[in-house]
Nucleic acid binder design. Structure first.
Lengths: 227, 227
DNA sequence: CTTGCGCTCAATGTATACACGAAACATCAG
DNA sequence: CTGATGTTTCGTGTATACATTGAGCGCAAG
């Protein structure tokens, strides 16, 4: 496998898992010795991560970006626009099979959610598969690219949220409704159900992610200028 | 200025202007001698262009991507989702000044459009400024990033379209309505007016871009699988 | 004549040396 | 004591040499 790809996957995974928290300085030489490759593939990886918005180049090394509450709100605004549209398109262009399979798995979700950590992982796999199925059914490469970007950041936020079991059970039901709407070919319902789901998710995310994940306690100036 | 930046700007500009048509092979060494820099910044530029979707890495060099009719439809689907949302947000969060200025300039559009090539360029500057004003007013960095991506491809498609004067005059009117809706704080109208505008633009683009811009006449398999 | 194998070479992937620039620090003048 | 300025140093920017891979092509066997 290409070293640049490995470096990118590794760094991205570590950022998403929170191993590399916001504010962490990623220097090319330092990372190249740590990952056992030369600076060139590390540079490539850092550039890709910067394009993803996961890191930000500064004068002294590139640093892992922070996520403010305003960022969460902004991300959900974009998610709503993209996912609502994607769900609507999926309802019109779907192949039934993958959604039927996902519906069955979602019906199992309440049981999974009672199983603790492992079940939680399984549950999120179902949700991710649903996202992929919608993306594929929407059959729109541009939309797909935009969705991949928001899902990247969503995965990062997901880790920050405390996972209230009640909320997750409700979310599973919302997902089930979205799938039903898609299978019924009801684009408008699929779109609106997605809107509702994201609205509730955002409310929960804001409530359960009490503090911004920032590395440096100093210089925290997060003005919530979004109403 | 950084060499990698220059290489990126140059190549991107040439692709957008059609100097480098779809299918053109961009090899690292070849481009590095042409641009007068080493392979390293050229590599960086090509990677960024690939992330933008303007080129595609293949086994033998990276090639400039083609634009099919299906791509145009797909791009407009995404544009509609993004720009309608952005217009709605702009209506709620706007500062009046920039939109008042743009409204005045749009009122001048019919005169500009009678002036031929130079006026056309001026007209598109107004439209681009409107896009930027909406982006800024929406105050959403994630949405902004997605918008930059679609506007990149839109600029490429714009070059392919024959510019019907009647259509452009109508489009100017549609833009004026969007601006009025934003200034009135009517998010729903701004959003729907954007939808209408893009719908009409797409119809015109499909009618006036008769052939796919492809380099190799052989192996053209553009199934319009989007209804 | 067709098909499969293996060679060749060209283009990308990687490593590393050198150049450049900016930030931090120390030193000195006011 | 404070401010400015020169110096130093660390990190990225660029160039280039070397490694690797895989696509194209020719040759030989069926």
């Amino acid at each position: 496998m290409r070293a640049g790809e490995r470096a990118y996957d590794t760094l991205r995974g570590e950022i998403l898992d929170g191993v590399l928290g916001p504010g962490t300085v990623l220097q090319e030489v330092e990372q190249s010795v740590r990952l056992g490759v030369s600076r060139t593939p590390v540079r490539e990886a850092l550039r890709r991560l910067a394009a993803d918005g996961l890191v930000e180049p500064t004068a002294r090394g590139t640093i892992v970006t922070a996520i403010s509450r305003a960022d969460i709100v902004a991300l959900y605004e974009l998610r709503e626009a993209l996912e609502a549209r994607a769900a609507g398109l999926a309802a019109r262009r779907r192949a039934d099979a993958p959604f039927l399979a996902i519906r069955d798995r979602l019906r199992d979700a309440p049981r999974l959610l009672a199983e603790g950590e492992a079940g939680l992982t399984r549950y999120f796999e179902i949700v991710d598969d649903l996202d992929r199925a919608i993306d594929e059914a929407a059959a729109n490469p541009f939309l797909g690219g935009a969705l991949r970007s928001v899902q990247l950041h969503s995965a990062r936020i997901r880790r920050l949220s405390r996972h209230n079991p009640d909320r997750l059970r409700a979310a599973a039901g919302e997902h089930e409704l979205i799938v039903d709407a898609i299978l019924a070919g009801d684009a408008e319902l699929a779109s609106h159900a997605t809107h509702v789901h994201l609205h509730r998710s955002l409310t929960n995310a804001l409530a359960s992610a009490p503090v911004d994940e920032v590395a440096e306690p100093a210089d925290v100036d997060d003005g919530p200028r979004v109403a």
